[in-house]
Amino acid sequence: MNLEKILAISGKPGLYVLRVQTRSGFVAESLADGKKITVNLKSNVSLLSEISIYTYEGEKPLTEIMNNIAKKENNGLAISHKEDNATLLAYFREVLTDFDEDRVYPSDVKKILNWYNILHGKGLVVDAPAVEEAVEAVTEEVVAEKPKKEKKVKE
């Protein structure tokens, strides 16, 4: 699973795809509704590919965790992030047996499962080479659904 252009923006729900970099920040597109937003450089933005989870032996990249969830679920949906904390931690223990329980909180597990299910809903839980094609297909689908506004000509 390739998470190179997938973003989590603090204060904004859901996940975003990095589209264009500008002088003052960048343009991101929501995976939920396809709306584009501009994000300035002062915003707290995390690339999912840069996120790691604490284990007793070090840190594991989020990509590896997502792949473990995909293997466990046969590329299907994971459990809901709205389950109780005990259920979430038990599930996460099956996915990553040696995660550091003192440093990884239930809220972290909720985010990871929510992100996984969002990515799955958009067809991005696939083999790494197919991710770029899937992201482009989602983008084209969202763009095709939006009707273009006609320009009015003054006479």
Rank of each mutant, 00 (worst) to 15 (best):
L62M: 10
F92E: 05
I69A: 03
K72H: 13
L96V: 10
R93E: 15
R93W: 12
N75S: 13
R93F: 13
N68M: 07
M66E: 08
A78V: 05
N67C: 11
Y91L: 02
G76A: 08
F92H: 04
L62A: 11
R93S: 15
M66F: 10
K82C: 06
T87Q: 02
A78D: 06
L77K: 14
K71Y: 14
A78E: 06
Y91V: 00
A70Y: 06
L89R: 04
G76Q: 07
H81S: 12
I65Q: 08
K71L: 15
N74K: 15
L96S: 10
D84E: 03
D98H: 09
L88M: 03
R93H: 15
E73A: 08
V95E: 04
N67K: 14
F92M: 04
R93V: 07
A70N: 05
N68Y: 10
L96C: 12
A86L: 01
K82F: 01
S80E: 02
L62H: 05
A86G: 02
A70T: 06
Y91I: 02
I65F: 06
L89H: 02
N68H: 08
N74G: 12
A78Q: 07
L96Y: 10
T97Q: 13
L88V: 01
I79P: 01
E73C: 11
N67G: 12
